[in-house]
Nucleic acid binder design. Structure first.
Length: 870
RNA sequence: GCGGGCAUGGCGGAAUCGGUAGACGCAAGGGACUUAAAAUCCCUCGGCCUUAGUGCUGUCCGGGUUCAAGUCCCGGUGCCCGCACCA
């Protein structure tokens, strides 16, 4: 019997059109809908121009969840949009003399077409781009609300300035001292900026991490580290003589137990005391200026010498009468952590040790290992002693209460002691800073305020929103075109009506993505959200995206939910109930730095004498095969999803992306793997075609037996397992089971089938098609039709397995002797421990090993194993 | 430096709470069908063996707990990730 091969190029668009016509994936988010809501969301893409395999993997996963949950009876919200503001559009505008708007919307159109060809079950009626005035109008509304609720403020701050993109970057966007996008060395500049008060939420954002039990532990840890809570002691050190209006200054330390070993003080060059002193001391002024020039890159910081400037000032040591400590201005003290001032204890800190060694300062130990009998200060003279957490130490020079404590206990004891003696107080510090959102760019959401010479900073009136970006801009010079726009900038003050100037900074694009998930619920309302609908649909039940957003985007979104709750837009604090971070798509690389890199499509791969070689298609030259790396434009190891979908169809691409690796790990794209997936597509098709005629007329009898019963049990077991695997997002395991099940079903031949077998095969093949439908929806529809169903499988409820059929009738238990498997025992699943033990001891193999003796012990774990100990 | 993770055949990976290690897929080898190829189907596939046996050995290395360890504990090695002059 021959059957036509399944032709995805013909079938896929046909079914996509059908789903569209039926409006199958449009969601009723109204509050009167009684179906349980389920919100599944994949991180929306930046419209760079074309989708890549990472998108295919991400959206394939989300679509499995969406289709499965829909079949399980949920009202599923599965929307798509575009994170459309940002630098690349402006770069393209500069390079190609296009307009960011045209470039962006053209890209969106191209990528929408690509995504549609994947057959994703998305509600396209909710689509928006963050650069749509309809969207950013509501974002401006949120900004004004945040302003009202004191969640936004303006301050002059040292900012990270990207000299290539000519913009300010958030701390999170500076990687190794370089701009996250441009890669340029970041400079420090003083500018007046808008900030969101995320640091007000440090403790809350940290504490709530515990409740995120459907988030990866790794992401939770990264967020906790980022927030960076530490407990320490803040205390004032008094100057021996008041100077420039200061009688002393506050320091912060997480190691108060080293106070006795303090041998110098150091303050940041930006510290008010340093600044005041510099006004009177040109040498110090010069020092401060020099220090500020030093870059912030990792290498520079590592190699940068510790530099200090001795101010000549002294403070009194709080523990020892008459003892004084010199005050330095030092390059390694950060103004924005703690109080910008420290005491240095060289004996127990590498940095302080370096500094003290350079400037000839004393090194005084406050503790030594408990077995150290040496002269304590000699012990720490060449390197600092930093004990392990669990290590017990011998205290020297400590306040009495500390002397018996260890580790964290000692720190707490010192804080208590300092509080009792009114020297200072215990204080919690966070690493998290406020979020600077001002960007000196055109292609972003305008900050809706006006600067008036008489009224100051005036919020734009709500009825004037959106403050819309002007279209008539040019990009022939770097910088922000809004700054030099002739008319857009000049406006009347919303308050007094006098001539004023618009804020020309736009918002960081991370603002756009911090609330889009809420907007999808009511994408076209005249308010940012409709609170009762937002409360019903949020948090997002399952959010899926890359680990690269573990800190930035997710933390900002968590802040935004809280801020939006305060402003009355919803009552949800945590935006994402379940989070899943998928691995990357990786591919072999071809070439090297010297000869350049080649795309897979430019090469012929073959095997010669067991070794794989890559040959250029144009001239036959051999190109070295490099390491397996993330698909990237720079290494040119990308595979175009369009090519794959043209060759094999969307279903094959989706199936392969889900099959090989666990979804949180990297998956390697290989042609062989894609072909394997495609073989399976054809195998399913053949299975259905072969059985088509036999199955159409049959119906399930009350009971079946023998071979038919075996098939039936396999069907129900598979159905159960696949459902459980999908719930756990273990797509690779679900797929392995479906391969196994296909092998089982393919082993039955239609021409030998009696009516009973035919009826269980109908059930089995139908189950199988329903199980693959979330992953390969087009093929599933085609097969479903072939099986004689007139409905759409995409609109068919998930079948229920029969628990009685999903268990085995006869259990085969392994029987071990002294922990080594020696036999199999067939037992009734309900057999008692005693019955199993008795049966085991009757086995020939067991009797042979026992040689007539009694076993020392027999361990029977029902449904698992028997172990006979001799 | 600090914090975290991972390690299983030629490869990707399975293995629920400690209970048959290697499911499933890829690659490879052999065979069938065919004039031939493609497609398809069948078989083999961790290592070792004078005994081919429900034989021995085997989940990075060394110890331990247990009737039983890929899984738990202690020590080490290698790789990966995050943060980092944060006091």
């Amino acid at each position: 019997m021959t059957t036509e091969r399944y032709n995805p190029r013909e079938a896929e668009p046909r079914w996509q059109k059908k789903w569209d016509e039926e409006r199958l994936f449009e969601t009723d988010t109204g509050v009167s809908n009684t179906k349980p809501p389920y919100y599944v969301l994949e991180m929306f893409p930046y419209p760079s121009g074309r989708i890549h395999m990472g998108h295919v993997r991400n959206y394939a996963m989300g679509d499995v969840v969406a289709r499965y949950k829909r079949a399980k009876g949920y009202e599923v919200l599965h929307p798509m949009g575009w994170d459309a503001f940002g630098m690349p559009a402006e770069n393209a505008a500069m390079q190609n003399k296009t307009h960011p708007k045209g470039w962006t919307y053209d890209n969106i159109a191209a990528m929408r077409k690509q995504l549609k060809s994947m057959g994703l079950s998305l509600d396209w009626s909710r689509e928006f781009a963050t650069c749509d005035p309809e969207y950013y109008a509501q974002q401006q509304k949120l900004f004004l609300d945040f302003l009202k609720h004191d969640l936004v403020y303006r301050k002059s701050a040292k900012v990270n300035w990207d000299p290539v993109d000519m913009t300010v970057l958030a701390n999170e966007q500076v990687i190794d001292g370089k701009g996250w996008r441009s890669g340029a060395e970041v400079e420090q500049r003083e500018l007046t900026q808008w900030f969101f008060k995320i640091s007000d939420f440090s403790e809350e954002l940290l504490e709530a991490i515990d409740g995120l039990d459907e988030w990866p532990a790794k992401v939770k840890l990264m967020q906790a580290n980022w927030i960076g809570k530490s407990r320490g002691l803040q205390m004032k050190f008094d100057l021996t003589e008041p100077a420039v209006g200061f009688d002393g200054f506050e320091i912060y330390t997480t190691r108060p137990d080293t106070l006795a070993g303090a041998s110098f003080m150091a303050i940041a060059p930006e510290h008010p005391l340093a600044v005041a002193l510099a006004k009177e001391n040109p040498e110090l002024a010069e020092f401060n200026k020099e220090v500020r020039k030093t870059g912030t890159s990792a290498e520079e910081l590592e190699t940068a010498e510790k530099q200090g400037f001795d101010t000549g000032l002294k403070v009194r040591h709080p523990l020892y009468d008459g003892k004084t400590l010199p005050v330095f201005v030092a390059n390694f003290i950060l103004m924005d952590y703690g109080t910008g001032a420290i005491f240095g204890c060289p004996a127990h800190d590498q940095r302080d040790h370096d500094f003290a060694s350079k400037y000839g300062l004393p090194i005084i130990a406050t503790f030594v290992p408990s077995d150290c009998d040496d002269e304590p200060d000699a012990f720490v003279s060449s390197e600092p002693y930093v004990p392990l957490k669990s290590e017990t130490v011998k205290w020297i020079n400590q306040p009495a209460s500390v002397a018996t404590a260890t580790g964290q206990e000692a720190i707490e004891a010192t804080i208590d002691w300092a509080e009792q003696n009114t020297l200072g107080e215990g204080k919690v510090q966070y690493r998290l800073r406020d979020w600077g959102i001002s960007r000196q760019r055109y292609w972003g959401c305008p900050i809706p305020v006006v600067h008036c010479p008489s009224c100051g900073v005036v919020p734009e009136k709500e009825e004037n929103l959106p403050v819309q970006l002007p279209d008539d801009v040019t990009f022939d010079v770097p910088g922000n075109p809004l700054d030099r726009h002739p008319t857009w900038r000049d406006v009347a003050c919303p308050e007094c009506g006098e001539p004023a100037k618009r804020e020309t900074d736009t918002m960081d694009t991370f603002v756009d993505s911090s609330w889009y998930f809420a907007r999808f619920i009511t994408p076209h309302e005249k308010t940012p959200t409709v609170p009762e609908q937002a409360n019903r649909w949020l948090p997002v039940d399952q959010y899926i995206g890359g680990i690269e957003h573990a800190i930035l985007h997710l933390l900002y979104s968590r802040f935004f939910s809280r801020a939006m709750s305060i402003a009355g837009h919803m009552e949800i604090k945590e935006p994402f109930k379940g989070l899943f971070t998928q691995g990357m798509v990786v591919h072999e690389t071809y070439g090297n730095k010297d000869i350049g890199w080649f795309q897979p499509a430019e090469l012929l791969l073959e095997e010669v004498d067991g070794k794989r070689i890559a040959k250029r298609l144009d001239n036959g030259e051999i190109v070295p095969i490099g390491s397996i790396e993330k698909m990237s434009k720079s290494k040119r190891n990308t595979v175009d999803p369009d090519d794959i979908m043209q060759t094999y169809g969307a279903d094959t691409a989706r199936w392969f992306m889900l099959s090989d690796s666990p979804p949180d790990r990297d998956v390697e794209w290989t042609d062989a793997g894609a072909e394997g997936a495609h073989r399976f597509v054809q195998r399913i098709w053949r299975l259905v075609q072969n059985w088509q005629d036999v199955l159409s007329e049959t119906s399930m009898p009350e009971t079946v037996s023998g071979k038919a019963q075996d098939i039936r049990k396999a069907s129900h077991k598979t159905l159960k397992a696949v459902g459980e695997d999908i719930e756990k997002l273990a797509f690779n395991r679900a797929i392995a089971r479906l391969y196994e099940y296909c092998n089982t079903l393919s082993g039955v031949k239609p021409d030998q089938a009696d009516p009973e077998v035919a009826s269980v095969m109908k059930e089995g093949v139908s189950f199988h098609i329903q199980c693959i439908a979330p992953m390969m929806p087009h093929l599933a529809e085609e097969c479903w039709r072939s099986l004689g169903y007139e409905t759409l499988v995409s609109a068919t409820p998930w079948p229920e397995y029969d628990p009685a059929l999903a268990v085995d009738d006869i259990l085969i238990m392994p029987v071990q002797i002294n922990g080594k498997k020696r036999a199999d025992l067939e037992v009734n699943p309900d057999a008692s421990k005693e019955e199993i033990e008795a049966a085991s001891l009757q086995l020939d193999v067991v009797m042979k090993y026992l040689e007539g003796r009694d076993p020392k012990k027999v361990i029977v774990v029902p449904k698992r194993i028997v172990n006979v100990v001799i």
